[in-house]
């Protein structure tokens, strides 16, 4: 079993998914603090029609083309959310739910259409994008993830100060001359990049979990933006790597779910045990406070 783990293939997969967890932890921190935790969810669901359209156009399962298609419809979905939420009486939560469902529905229709057309009935492997499958990951996939991670990490490190000021106090940022709208757009582009990179291994439905759970868990451990970003990155990496290891042990289980579950366990752990902000600490403090009131009486 140990041999199984250190096989070349497994190492490739571990590198790819670990990097993915890291980078989604970083971007997830930004979106959670932007109070747009579920924007990634809408984006991820909206990638499905893009995957199918790209397949229809290219005619075979070529990953870069599929992911490009996914990125296009995903970002278009997010664009629809912001148009709907701004220009009309639809509130942003409804807009998010609407876009998510309708795009996903369109994706299912297209995928069935493809299934009917392809003679071998292999579904072009599009089903694997729904819940994610890491076993097929090869070196070129990892290189793609690495490229995306490099771009995203470079931009986040470079613009860290700028993101911090826009996320914390956007009116002050605007008053001091920072282009808050462009930074917001850039953030959504980064989310798009990460989601698309994660589709093959985590899948459409659970990509959100990698963007939200590590960031939410990290918030329990620190009061500083820098630290939160780093901790979230570590948790993300931990979750994906654990997920992959588990999925090599239980081959019939979808990797995306195992990753999500690993992240969820870290979250529960953090929410209870983290110093200062964890439930146990807060509960103890509350009791101590109540006691001090009794004594002063």
């Amino acid at each position: 079993m140990l041999n199984e783990l250190i096989r070349y293939n497994t190492l490739v997969i571990l590198a790819g998914t670990g990097l993915l967890g890291l980078v989604s932890g970083v971007v997830g921190t930004l979106t959670v603090l932007r109070r747009r935790a579920l924007a990634g969810d809408a984006l991820a669901h909206a990638t499905l029609p893009g995957l199918c359209l790209a397949f229809l156009i290219v005619g075979e399962r070529r990953l870069p083309a599929l992911l490009l298609g996914a990125a296009i419809t995903g970002l278009f979905g997010l664009f629809c959310v912001s148009v709907l939420a701004r220009g009309t009486r639809i509130k942003d939560d409804s807009a998010l739910a609407l876009v998510l469902g309708v795009f996903f529905g369109a994706g299912i229709v297209l995928s069935r259409w493809i299934q009917n057309r392809t003679t071998d009935g292999s579904k072009a492997g599009l089903d694997s994008f729904l819940l994610g499958k890491t076993s097929g990951m090869i070196l070129s996939d990892v290189l793609l993830i690495a490229a995306v991670s490099a771009i995203v990490l470079f931009l986040v490190v470079l613009l860290f100060k700028e993101f911090q000021i826009t996320l914390f106090d956007s009116s002050f940022a605007q008053a001091t001359g920072w282009p808050t709208a462009s930074l917001d757009l850039l953030l959504m582009l980064l989310v798009g990049l990460v989601v698309v990179a994660g589709l093959p291994s985590v899948g459409v439905v659970l990509m959100t979990s990698l963007l939200v759970i590590p960031a939410a868990a990290a918030r329990f451990w620190t009061d500083r933006f820098v630290n939160m970003t780093c901790i979230s990155a570590i948790i993300g990496m931990l979750a994906t790597v654990t997920g992959v290891i588990l999925s090599t042990l239980f081959e019939d289980l979808p990797t995306g779910s195992l990753m999500t579950l690993a992240a969820a366990i870290v979250f529960v752990f953090s929410a209870f045990l983290a110093p200062c902000r964890g439930w146990i600490w807060r509960n103890n403090r509350r009791k101590a406070f109540a006691k001090s009131l009794d004594i002063s009486k």
């Binding site: 439905v205 979990s209 759970i213 999500t260 579950l261 969820a264």
Partner: peptide, 9 residues
């Protein structure tokens, strides 16, 4: 997402 993951598993 956590509950859904459990369900899928």
């Amino acid at each position: 997402t956590s509950l859904f993951a459990i369900g899928v598993l």
